[in-house]
Amino acid sequence: MKLDFDTWLAVVQLQADYAAAVDSGRWELWPDFFTDDCVYKLQPRENHERGFPLSTLAFDGKASLRDRVYGIQETLFHDPYYQRHVVGTPVLRGVEGDGAIRCESNYAVFRTKLNGLSTVFNVGRYLDRVVRTPDGLRFAERVAVYDSEMIPNSIIYPI
């Protein structure tokens, strides 16, 4: 896969569609942004930089993402909130031998509780491995590396 303007634009669209889906609260859309054998992690910066595998959330495969969606919709009890992603322009870092695109983008997620003000919820960068599928570009790997060592008492929704 060549790194040209059309490829970059397709990555930008994938990121925008992802943010719109998770911000809409339509959680059933979330797994479809990934390949069947995907990896999704939410990991503290310190662990990532030191090469430690411990992550706040870690899912292997689309089936585990669907399980998380089920948990969000049916079993987890929490104060509901809205979230809104602001995602920076992706930087395409290169293409691997199998054609996968390595890219990176900064993000900020704001949270609004139903009876409160909006607050900064999570800030960091996405480290993505994106592949072309018959259905368009999908995340084979998405690692959200967050900057703060402190996070709210629970992270329910995908970052």
Score class of each variant (00 low, 15 high):
residue 159 I to G: 05
residue 142 R to P: 04
residue 23 D to K: 09
residue 98 D to M: 07
residue 106 N to Y: 08
residue 40 Y to W: 14
residue 81 Y to W: 04
residue 6 D to R: 12
residue 32 D to G: 15
residue 95 V to F: 00
residue 37 D to G: 10
residue 91 V to I: 12
residue 78 H to G: 05
residue 14 L to V: 14
residue 100 A to R: 10
residue 120 V to Q: 02
residue 116 G to S: 00
residue 148 S to P: 12
residue 108 A to W: 00
residue 59 F to L: 09
residue 142 R to F: 10
residue 6 D to Q: 13
residue 54 L to R: 04
residue 36 D to H: 14
residue 109 V to F: 08
residue 107 Y to L: 15
residue 76 L to Y: 10
residue 137 L to T: 07
residue 159 I to W: 07
residue 152 P to R: 02
residue 45 R to P: 01
residue 107 Y to H: 02
residue 117 L to Y: 02
residue 142 R to C: 04
residue 96 E to L: 06
residue 143 V to T: 06
residue 69 V to S: 12
residue 70 Y to G: 15
residue 58 A to Y: 10
residue 63 A to R: 14
residue 61 G to C: 02
residue 30 W to F: 15
residue 53 P to S: 04
residue 67 D to S: 14
residue 73 Q to K: 14
residue 44 P to F: 01
residue 23 D to S: 04
residue 101 I to C: 06
residue 46 E to N: 12
residue 56 T to D: 03
residue 13 Q to G: 07
residue 64 S to W: 08
residue 31 P to F: 12
residue 22 V to R: 03
residue 146 Y to V: 06
residue 114 L to H: 09
residue 125 R to T: 03
residue 74 E to M: 15
residue 34 F to M: 14
residue 97 G to S: 13
residue 139 F to A: 13
residue 32 D to T: 11
residue 22 V to P: 14
residue 87 V to D: 09
residue 64 S to I: 05
residue 22 V to K: 14
residue 134 P to D: 01
residue 35 T to K: 08
residue 46 E to W: 00
residue 125 R to H: 09
residue 105 S to L: 01
residue 127 L to V: 13
residue 37 D to N: 15
residue 47 N to S: 03
residue 63 A to Y: 04
residue 98 D to R: 13
residue 33 F to Y: 12
residue 115 N to F: 10
residue 141 E to V: 06
residue 61 G to E: 00
residue 154 S to E: 11
residue 37 D to T: 11
residue 38 C to W: 11
residue 56 T to K: 10
residue 88 G to V: 06
residue 35 T to Y: 12
residue 126 Y to G: 03
residue 48 H to K: 08
residue 60 D to Y: 14
residue 128 D to Y: 05
residue 116 G to E: 10
residue 109 V to L: 09
residue 142 R to L: 15
residue 126 Y to Q: 00
residue 49 E to C: 03
residue 16 A to M: 10
residue 86 V to Q: 07
residue 139 F to K: 03
residue 48 H to A: 10
residue 50 R to D: 00
residue 72 I to D: 05
residue 81 Y to T: 01
residue 82 Y to K: 01
